[in-house]
Design a protein around this nucleic acid. Structure first.
Lengths: 211, 211, 211, 211
DNA sequence: GATGAATGAGTATTCATTCAT
DNA sequence: TATGAATGAATACTCATTCAT
């Protein structure tokens, strides 16, 4: 392992160290109330150091989303590349993947909505922004692709795969957000999994071409 | 009309004047960038006056949500009180009502999510908060009630009406938010209505008990 | 006196209050080391209030220059409008005026050089900037005008009045700056007046057309 | 050449390398906007290395002035040591020397004024400071010495040579600064040489004892 | 000597909120 | 009631300088 490579690795470790701290602080306080000093403190670094690794507060926050988008895309591609699945089975695999992604980071949807606010987008560097867009589009495309065979074989209803992907994603994110909201308002227990399961069940049935 | 009552009416008019101005400013700039001075200016009042009618910036913003929640509840109750509708017809009426509510104020969902962030809730007065919760719960209950007959008659699947209400609401808000997001990222045209229609179609079919 | 006018007057008083405080603090610490908080403290106001009257730190500093430029221009115009002065007498009046301006504010030249740095100019509002330029140009023109008659009557050498004005101003500002510098380096006594007098004497003689 | 000496030479080369880079960066960005990292980058060194050769940013900047002061002093001494010059001729040689020094580094005066600000002086090491003072005083003395013979021979007016040196230096620096300023404000062309020539002409005539 | 990653003190500016009038 | 001038807490970000390697 050359010196160059070791440095690169060290640098990546620092980034992760900061991201982990940022996630903790942002989760607890939300974007606005969390200060860079809080995060630096949590990461046991000085504020200045954060800026060696992230352009600004927005980009640090957005990095959390980037990470999850990467995880999401990999999961989705896995669903697509699995062989010999019937359309219904592949749909089931998609749903399982979404549960998995949610488990990996339950803040996924909240992060992503913050990310998409126009104010935030303005403060990101172009490079960063295009990475986000690319991952975002690929993920959607991956979801769409899952529906394709089913549509072609006339098992699923005759909609454009992209439209189905939008609806599927909207349903997923809607349930996640809504269940998070209910917690704030009703201080209920966490029904996320159950609701999501029921939602997916309805979606799956609604997706099938009526006989 | 007594003096007391006239004063009350005058006061209410001021509140509305401020709310209208606030809506314009918040829509244009978003919560963070909008300043109380902006709103005061738009309402042709002084900043101090705003605080005679609203406890603080958060509560002013939340008032926008309150207003729409009231509209929503009335619409939903209307769907419920209409007589002689078959479950499928009532479901259709619900969907139409949601389109209508969205037209009344397209920012509905965005407002509501801001409202539900824990940061915001902390700054609201208890009175206000309970009004919100009440309306919120009543609305959900109204939606749930729409499904009841269909479930009883075994036309709709056998889920708890509240669960179906959650899913329906999540689907609606998910689509609204997601389509808004896509505009930021892809600068696409506005496909909201189409996506919503397709989503509702799938939902309606998925809701029906399989034969 | 109407309410409007009284408010206007009150506002102007505040501006002056701030300017006086700013002058004290900037004189003592220089532009960079002086903080807005220092100035606010000196003015017995809060930092925020400074920004109600001045756009930013640069513009507050520049206001000091504006004030002196106004004084300078009035003095110079006075020299020009005085009647029945022979060119030599008018030149003498100019020199006296410069002594007077220096007494009014010995930091005049130092302020003005800070003002003219390009970094500073960028931070000024266009309105402010054009006021500065206008006063600056008028002052130069006023000096030039003082030389005109003498040139026409062939008492002074045959140079363009503007060129003479430049040289005169350069000599004045050069002496002021240099004597200020010497104080820092040599901690000498203040020879400004003597040096300026001698410099003016040489200039006056050099200005006369050789026989 | 011993090892010691070779090291010494190597060290001096590094200093020059840094000074050259510093000059480029400071010229382009000014003192405040120029960062030590900029300079390090320009010198193809690391920031830390700069501090092995210069105590701090101020002293690095001041080194530029030191360099030009050395050049100035040599030029002035050359004027003094030239033999068989009549006072008027020696005065002319002085003026030529000043043109030459300006050509060597047009930022000379701006640097020197920065140098003389009290803020800067506080940050210099005593050694460095006394070098500056020494060169500065010697240069003034050299200028004064140029006038001496002319005064003694009653060709120049009867002022103390040091006073004449001050005035001469003030005139030179005043013109340089003023012409630089005019460029910022009026975006005029560069009239420096012309103005300086005219200024020197007036000075030379004013210096001569009236008959 | 040279490096360059890490430091952390330092500050202009904003804006929700107040309160004397 | 209404005003709007004044407040002052709060914070992202910079960059000269250091020091372990």
């Amino acid at each position: 392992m050359g010196i160059q490579e070791r440095k690169e690795r060290e640098k990546e470790r620092r980034r992760q160290q900061i991201i982990v701290a940022a996630k903790r602080v942002f989760s607890e306080k939300g974007f606005n109330k969390a200060t860079m000093e809080d995060i630096a403190h949590e990461a046991e670094l000085s504020p200045g150091t954060l800026y060696l690794y992230f352009k600004n507060k927005e980009e640090l926050y957005a990095s959390l989303s980037l990470r999850i988008l990467q995880y999401l895309l990999i999961s989705l591609e896995h669903v697509n590349t699995e062989k010999d699945l019937k359309p219904e089975e592949r749909l089931q695999a998609l749903m399982d993947a979404m549960f998995d992604v949610y488990d990996f980071d339950p803040l996924i949807i909240i992060n992503m909505f913050h990310l998409q606010s126009s104010e935030t987008l303005k403060n990101l560097s172009p490079d960063f922004l295009s990475k986000i867009k690319e991952l975002s589009q690929k993920s959607l495309a991956a979801i769409a692709s899952i529906f394709e065979e089913g549509i072609k074989k006339e098992i699923f209803i005759d909609k454009h795969p992209t439209a189905l992907a939008d609806i599927f994603w909207a349903l997923f994110s809607g349930v996640v957000l809504w269940e998070a909201s209910k917690k704030f308002i009703n201080e209920d227990k966490d029904y996320l999994k159950q609701t999501l399961e029921a939602a997916f069940e309805i979606f799956a049935r609604g997706l099938k071409r009526p006989i």
